[in-house]
Design a binder for these strands. Sequence first.
RNA 1: GCCUGGGUGGCGGAAUUGGUAGACGCAAGGGACUUAAAAUCCCUCGGGGCUUCGCUCUGUGCGGGUUCGAUUCCCGCCCCAGGCACCA
Length: 869
Amino acid sequence: MYWRLETGMNRRYNPQEIEESWQKRWEERGVFKVEEDQGKKKYYLLEMFPYPSGRIHIGHVRNYTIGDVVARYKRMKGFNVLHPMGWDSFGMPAENAAIEHGTHPAVWTNENIAYMKKQLKRMGFSYDWDREISTCEPDYYRWEQLFFLWMYEKGLAYKKRSSVNWCSHCQTVLANEQVEAGLCWRCGTEVGEKVLDQWFFRITDYVEELLDYCDRLPGWPEKVLTMQRNWIGRSYGCEILFPMADSAEAIKVFTTRQDTIYGATFMLIAAEHPLVMDLVRNKAIEKPVQEFVEKVKKQDRLLRTSEYYEKEGIFLDTFCLNPVTGKKMPIFAANFVLADYGTGCVMAVPTHDQRDFEFAKKYNLPLIVVIQPPDKPLNVQTMHEAYVDDGILVHSGRFDGMENTKAMEAIAEHLETIGRGKRTVQYRLRDWGISRQRYWGAPIPIIHCDKCGAVPVPEADLPVVLPRDVDLSGEGGSPLSRHKAFVETTCPRCDGPAGRETDTMDTFVESSWYFDRFCSARFDSSPGLDRKRVDYWMPVDQYIGGIEHAILHLLYSRFYTKMLRDFGVLGVDEPFTNLLTQGMVCKETMRCREHGYLYPQEVNDGRCSFCGGEIAVGKTEKMSKSLKNVVDPDYLIQQYGADTVRIFCLFASPPEKDLEWSDQGVEGSFRFLGRLWRIVMDYLDDIRNVKAFDGKTGLEGELKQLRRKTHQTIRKVTSDIEERFHFNTAISAVMELLNVLYQARPASDADSQVFAVIRETIETIILLMAPIVPHMTEELWMLLGHEENLADMPWPSFDAEVASEEEITIVIQVNGKVRGRIHVAADEDGEAIKSLALADEKVGRFIQGKRVIREVYVPKKLVSLVVED
RNA sequence: GCCUGGGUGGCGGAAUUGGUAGACGCAAGGGACUUAAAAUCCCUCGGGGCUUCGCUCUGUGCGGGUUCGAUUCCCGCCCCAGGCACCA
């Protein structure tokens, strides 16, 4: 091999070398450190921080690449950009790993953080690492404990004995939001029921505001807002009292259909409701009812699988009275009535509610039609399902003949006047249960004293530090409750012996305010948030993360923000102004009949590498270890470099859509970068000492076209990034420009003006690609002789005049079909264009001998001619 | 069942306000360079038909409608993905 000078066209694209050297330089120069600057407009860009599970997976890579491009772009646009990163580092996997491998959760977690941090740095993300936070550290969770004390004081945190969702695998409680189709959201185990003393956050205090603000978040995807609205589930209706037939007591129900009250023929009570046993006490049927209730409770634990249970009930041998008709209504305990929604009691209107209809048919209960549909009248003898739509009231006393929608109000008012009911609002949302019987979480700062009850830890004693030396055998409930030194303490109020609360907080509490902490990550006086700095940065301008957090994390964060605002530590109503939910990264699965799912490297030429059997290529699914369709980011970086991984993630599909991973696609992205590298190398010697074209002199022909394309590309890329985050089309536009540049090879006697224009194009491509492939572009920028960091360069602007076409194509349609195209000057007069269109030879064939009835001219686009048939 | 999205070449995807459907990339085919291969560069590429250097018909899940003109708007239907699911 001969000696080659590492300059000019001889230099090869070596991503590893370039990327590592620039990562080092950025770090040394502190390029991405950021401080508040009142003179500059701020931009807070945040990606959802990861749980340190061990390694970065490709979903993270995509999420953080999208964020990094926006952060770098906004920075070039002159914003003071806050782009932090941290670790959601409390949680069960650490504890499970400890039980399995004997590694302490803190050690396991910190090792993972160290490794993942290295991976993120290797991707070249522009984080301000000085603001890094890890939620399992006392300097983070101490403030969370402080907020807990404030919440406790205000009654926003409270303890109550309740039946909870219990995951036997995770040995912990789950919030309603954390149960998905009856299964644990994390491990997929069936969720059971358990009665425990539990801590709750009173999110329902903020339910109105949380719902109302769903209409004031224009920067959020409608899909997410809809999911939140449904989750909160507001419904307007009435609470109505049904007096008992033989006592002065009354049963209170909630209904949204008070218009059907004249059709209420029986009463249903949730089987678990305490009233059920009260009503049958000392009666002959007490025992069978007791058995029924037990059975239903067991049914509940067995879960609602995909099929509804059979509706069942038992007559309680007692009656109440319909408050408007005075008719006797039998009372049943039923398995399908929810105990914790509304009042747990339901007035049953079998004619106009499908569930009640089925129940009435089964137990032979009376039906009275009170709403008649407009078309054909209902008949109780022949109806085979409830009529739930609108109509005219019948059998409803003074309300007969009224439209049911109007009767809603009228009947509500009537009930209020006679003192039998009142208008109310119900929500589906329940309070947020945050107690976890787990070790690896933030301790709840409460002390239980036999004399004084639950006593908050004094603020001065915070943090309540999670002890290191625990016994993590995985047996016998929470390790904290077995840790004497932690539990045994004295009561802050009476100084008597007392025990610490051993529940830890749900890890969703940490992620409900980490974005605030980033604003003043090292602030170590109360309340952990420096108001001045938080006011400068909050709210987050752009939040980016997976759609899977549409309800849980985002709803909790909104609640926490409003609460902290009311505590006076925050000045915003909502944490995230704009939200981008990116799609999942998917890949096809491969499966051997004998060996199950296989990793790509276990497949050779479509055959299993273990048994040589044929491979079935399964459908494309979200990458997961169990399906073995994961792609290793380390391997990709080693093979192609971080820039290629970044550009592929962006190019293959727009961010909100799922991304299908394709090795060939990666290859294509790598090829494009090589192409860009090579053309710059080819021109390097010719343009190194030339200044980019400044537009002072006129250009002609190919050169003029190249320059026009350059400015058009700036326009296109800017709007694609700014308005829609459609990086795929932005990259396409740059590819087009590069193709044009390849076509425009200059003659051998080209003058400096030619190279000036070429330099302008090359510099433009470098600047436009800088946020997407920052390493390669920094290197090229330097090779062109620049000394400043490319990351600090201003985003290029385009000259509208240069970008405008001087000749445009006008399409000519005849009867709606394209029949010709003509090229005219951009400023050509409409009348002239119309006559050109009529004179066009091809068009002539279609209008010859026919009368033109209509001519439509759309400026700069087309002429549409309508002719007689 | 209900609520959201979505359905465009062999594939990923473009088409931004109702105005040239298929940008860009992948795969495929052809050519140039090379002893050869890789790499690279160039060309072709929705489908059908024809009198084939061009012309024509057809085509954005299916069926209708509005319009000079519909991938885009309206009505009905089919399919796929996600969310919720006895919430009275």
